[in-house]
Design a protein around this nucleic acid. Structure first.
Length: 499
RNA sequence: GCGAUUGUAGUCUAGCCUGGUAGGACUUUGGCCUUCCAAGCCAAAAACCCGGGUUCAAAUCCCGGCGAUCGCACCA
């Protein structure tokens, strides 16, 4: 689906639009409407039931959005989210000072301060590479939003730049509460904040975003996997330094590319989530390995999860699988002076972390883009039933006292268990079309047969299927069961641990 | 943040160059009709991103801001 169509659909059908829109909006901030909020919630629920609920010793946490300065100094964010920028006085272009210097062959030490860099700029007579103009003094730019706490606003804090840190900070207490078992999975769905220089492409690059992340803490010496049923599953992987993506089995990823089994297993796990549960076509899903400068320094192995999204112009990152080793717990041990290592199996060691990270907003956008189908006569959002914002529409076929009364009572009964919408405005076709556009999988219509005692179809309704437009007659008393059967999502059916 | 393009009812858009009553389509609302897929008829509601300037007069021209798209830069 193209960008303009997606933006128009999102605005007109209640999905999402710029925050503070009536004041002209603010770049990088979006609000979800009543349909979008439901879709987002559905994604989060399906994600949780698959990645968290199917794991042994895996749980969800929730945590503060504002963190004091110290943990973010320890994690490296205060220094490393901090670019030293330099601006040309003439053409006003910004450059990263360290990059500019190293391109000129000038060595810059890792933790160089702004003052040291200013000195180097002056010493080397650095001019703007674009217009040869003079360079201004450097200034630090930090991606994190700082906040000041207390009545004097004297204590510095930050809005968390990623949810991962919230989990690492709670590792030790949870490890003890959960009776010291590894692996232990701690997941968190929540907001993260980054002062992006240039927010772009709708929900792709935002200044306030929702992440769904699972941090798995494990013993690197004992965490092993029998690849079992996923061993022969083929995945699309674009390896670092490869020329193109290839289709390769999980077994081959382990054997030929020296990827640890636990990592390859989780690649398969994620692949199943996207292809089997979110119903993303195989050809539009791949892993993209990061290496060299594009890989975060703390990651031993880093693959982006990418989906081919037309409105974003190709394959784009919607998540990542990161082997972060013991970097995070080590950093917080040092920063907090608390030993976060564990003592198990007669060994004392720092647990390692495998992080499964997903951008919720990006995934919501991606789902709309990929499941949208526009043909000459209609527009349909072909979301799987368990992801659809509304599960059913309930309509009286026509304005008729008896029909409307029955339809209303059906709606009233279903809404305690399902998200259903009552609609009696306009022709029946128009109401079906409205439901198609927001992906509602079923439309329940009360007609004259329903209320006609002499009809063989008395006390039945028609249920229309969104994709095929076919209809079935269902007894009113069977509706709850019918809907439950179609709309309820059982993630164990897809999960490799049940194969 | 830089550059180019750009901003008109809920949505898509005409009008802007060449200043003078803001037009259409879809949607929405009410009514008529209609026994299942955006039908038809009647009626209604609804807009020039914000601020300033030029002018007798600004949606239109100029300046600033904000937002968006694309490119560059950025994205530990």
């Amino acid at each position: 689906m193209n960008l303009d169509d997606l933006v128009a659909l999102a605005k007109s059908r209640g999905l999402f639009w710029p925050a503070a829109e009536i004041y002209g909006g603010s770049a990088g901030f979006y609000d979800y409407g009543h349909v979008g909020a439901l879709l987002k919630k559905r994604f989060e629920n399906v994600w949780t039931s698959y990645f968290v609920d199917q794991g042994d010793n895996y749980y969800i946490l929730d945590a503060a959005h504002i963190l004091p300065e110290k943990p973010l100094i320890a994690s490296g964010h205060a220094a490393l989210f901090n670019d030293i920028l330099i601006q040309c006085t003439k053409c006003k272009t910004y450059f990263r000072a360290d990059v500019l210097l190293s391109e000129l062959g000038v060595k810059v030490s890792e933790g160089a301060t702004a003052a040291q860099i200013d000195e180097l700029i002056e010493k080397e007579h650095v001019k703007c590479p674009k217009c040869k103009g003079a360079m201004a003094k450097t200034k630090p730019f930090n991606m994190m939003f700082d906040v000041y706490l207390g009545p004097e606003r004297s204590e510095k804090g930050y809005l968390r730049p990623e949810t991962a840190q919230s989990v690492y900070l709670n590792f030790f207490r949870e490890f003890n509460i959960l009776r010291k078992k590894l692996p232990m999975g701690l997941a968190l769905i929540g907001k993260a904040y980054r002062n992006e220089i240039s927010p772009r492409q709708g929900l792709y690059r935002m200044r306030e975003l929702t992440q769904a992340e699972l941090q798995i803490f494990f013993d690197p010496e004992t965490w092993d996997f029998d690849l079992g049923k996923v061993s022969d599953r083929k995945l699309n992987v674009f390896f670092y330094e490869a020329k193109d993506a290839q289709r390769i089995t999980v077994k081959e990823i382990v054997e030929r590319h020296k990827v640890p089994k636990f990592y390859a297993y989780h690649m398969a796990l994620i692949d199943i989530f996207y292809t089997d549960i979110l119903k993303i076509p195989e050809s539009k899903f791949r892993f993209f390995e990061k290496g060299g400068d594009s890989k975060a320094f703390y990651n031993k192995l880093h693959m982006d999860i990418e989906v081919d999204v037309e409105s974003w112009g190709g394959f784009k990152e919607v998540g990542g699988l990161h082997y972060r080793t013991d970097y995070d717990l080590k950093s917080h041990s040092k920063g907090s002076n608390q030993d976060l290592s564990v003592n198990m199996n007669g060994r004392k060691f720092m647990p390692n972390v495998l992080e499964l990270s997903f951008g919720v907003d990006r995934n919501v956008w991606m789902l709309v883009d990929l499941h949208f189908e526009k043909s000459e006569d209609r527009t349909v959002l072909k979301l799987p039933a368990y992801l659809a914002p509304f599960s059913a529409g309930v309509f009286p076929l026509q304005h008729d006292e008896n029909i409307e009364r029955v339809a209303q009572s059906i709606h009233k009964r279903l809404r305690t268990e399902f998200k259903v919408e009552y609609d009696d405005a306009g022709s029946i076709g128009r109401r079906y079309a409205r439901m198609d556009e927001i992906g509602t999988p079923f439309c329940i219509t009360v007609d004259f047969d329903t209320v006609e005692k002499s009809s063989p179809n008395h006390e039945t309704v028609t249920v229309r299927f969104r994709d095929e437009k076919k209809q079935e007659r269902v007894k009113i008393s069977d509706l709850n069961q019918f809907l439950y059967g179609h709309v309820h999502h059982d993630s164990s059916k897809s999960h490799p641990s049940f194969m």
